[in-house]
Structure formats: structure tokens, C-alpha cells
């Protein structure tokens, strides 16, 4: 899932300083699961904002809504009639959702309430770890299911480098060396030959905005896939 964390309160408060009526929009998918931007977080944030603005003698009227997915037009429709009545929108969706909202309501200032952080896994309640950089050319088949692009601090394709430190990365003893793990796992699976070959230079696919149109959905209008 996409993992986000709430922005510092003062930064959010500063975004909204000139507005008196703001709609806080949560998203019910990834950011709700990672406890950053779902219904509960919307209500907590609104309570904090309400109190802070009262203390400043600048009361604010806050609306709250959480839709299933802000990255999907189908669900955004539910917002159309509501947004009209507010000066600004504070979105707690990931960066994609926030942009989709801003694009739909170009006259309305839309602000981010979270920092979108990574694609990751749930290690425990409230504890998430990054696993994927969405590079568009997955090498997990070669690397025993451990991503060197994400998990190696240098994103090396022919590691481990000389900085590997008793199974840890040179940047920190708490950060496992991805290539050490790749080596160990491949070695156990008798697949070391995978990494004895030189992996050639990457054709980076993520250096410009990407579009995917799945086979079967291409039309003459949308077929200019990037």
C-alpha cells in the first residue's frame, strides 16, 4: 500500500490561515489503512484545528468527509456538491489523490495534510516499512524477492558494495544490507549464478510521468502510452 504520514500541525495550520471554511477530505484506502488519512484521522485533525483557531481568536468552520478513494473519479463525484460550499480543501489522501482533487476543482485551493512517503508493508500496527520504488522494471526475480533499488541505500544492481558491514548497510547498523540478504537467500536456493552475471545499466523508466493502459483497454484516443 501507499504509506503516508501526517504533516506537522503547524504547517497545516499555516496553509489554512487565510480561510474560514475548510473541507477536510479523507481517503478510505491506503492512507486509512496506514492510519494517516482515514475517517478517524480527519476527525482528530479537525478537532485540533478547531481548537487552535479558537485559541487564536480566528474560528474556522470545518467540514469532514472520507471517500473510498480520492484517486478514482467514481468516488470523487460524491464531493462535487460539498466542495462548492468551502473556501478551501484539505486532503489527507496520498499525493495522487490530492492532485486528482485539485485537478477536479481548479478554482479551489487544495492543500496536502499528509506527506506521501512510500509503497510499503505493514510490519505491525502503526509500523510500516518501504519495499518498492515503482521503478517500472522489476528485478525481484533475479534478486530472490529482495529489491536492491529500494533496500540498498545506493540502489546498486551488482552489489553488495565494499561498505557492507557484517550484514548491515554502511549507513547504519540498524539497516540490513540488501545485497547481503540477496546473497544469503540466493545461496540457500542454489541460485547464486543469478548475480554472478553482470547486470547491465538500467533503462530508467521513472524519469518522466508514466501512464499505463492495460491491454484490452487501448483505444485510438488513449493509445499514446508513455
Amino acid at each position: 500500500m501507499i504509506v503516508a504520514k501526517r504533516k506537522p500541525f503547524d504547517e497545516i495550520k499555516d496553509f489554512l490561515k487565510d480561510y474560514k471554511k475548510v473541507l477536510t477530505a479523507g481517503c478510505g484506502t491506503c492512507v486509512a489503512v496506514c492510519l494517516a488519512g482515514g475517517e478517524k484521522e480527519v476527525s482528530v485533525l479537525n478537532a485540533e484545528l478547531d481548537m487552535a483557531r479558537r485559541l487564536d481568536n480566528k474560528p474556522i468552520e470545518l467540514g469532514a468527509i472520507t471517500i473510498e478513494r480520492q484517486c478514482d473519479r467514481e468516488y470523487l463525484e460524491a464531493l462535487d456538491s460539498m466542495v462548492e460550499g468551502y473556501d478551501a480543501v484539505l486532503s489527507l489522501a496520498c499525493g495522487a489523490g490530492i492532485q486528482f482533487l485539485a485537478e477536479r476543482y481548479p478554482e479551489k485551493p487544495v492543500f496536502p495534510g499528509v506527506d506521501t512517503t512510500f509503497i510499503g508493508v505493514n510490519q505491525d500496527v502503526g509500523w510500516y516499512e518501504e519495499r518498492c520504488r515503482s521503478c517500472s522494471s522489476c528485478v525481484l526475480g533475479m534478486t530472490a524477492g529482495i529489491c536492491p533499488v529500494t533496500m540498498c541505500a545506493k540502489g546498486l544492481y551488482n552489489g553488495p558494495c565494499g561498505g557492507t558491514n557484517k550484514g548491515s548497510c554502511e549507513i547504519s547498523k540498524d539497516q540490513p544490507c540488501a545485497w547481503y540478504m540477496i546473497y544469503e537467500r540466493l545461496s540457500k536456493q542454489n541460485r547464486l549464478d543469478n548475480i554472478l552475471k553482470i547486470t547491465p545499466v538500467q533503462d530508467w523508466q521513472n524519469q518522466k510521468p508514466r501512464t499505463v493502459i492495460q491491454p484490452g483497454y487501448k483505444t485510438s484516443e488513449n493509445s499514446a502510452e508513455k
Binding site: A153, K154, L156, N158, G159, C161, I171
Partner: peptide, 22 residues
């Protein structure tokens, strides 16, 4: 190259477009 976090600009964006073997 040593990771940028060791140096005097620890928050720099590193490149690693290609690695040392490449």
C-alpha cells in the same frame, strides 16, 4: 562512493544512475 549520509551534505540526492561495475 560512500553514501552521502556520511558527508557534509547528508541530505543531498545521490545519483547512482549506474554502479561501479557498470
Amino acid at each position: 562512493g560512500d553514501h552521502q549520509s556520511f558527508g557534509d551534505h547528508p541530505m543531498a540526492k545521490s545519483v547512482f544512475d549506474i554502479d561501479s561495475i557498470q
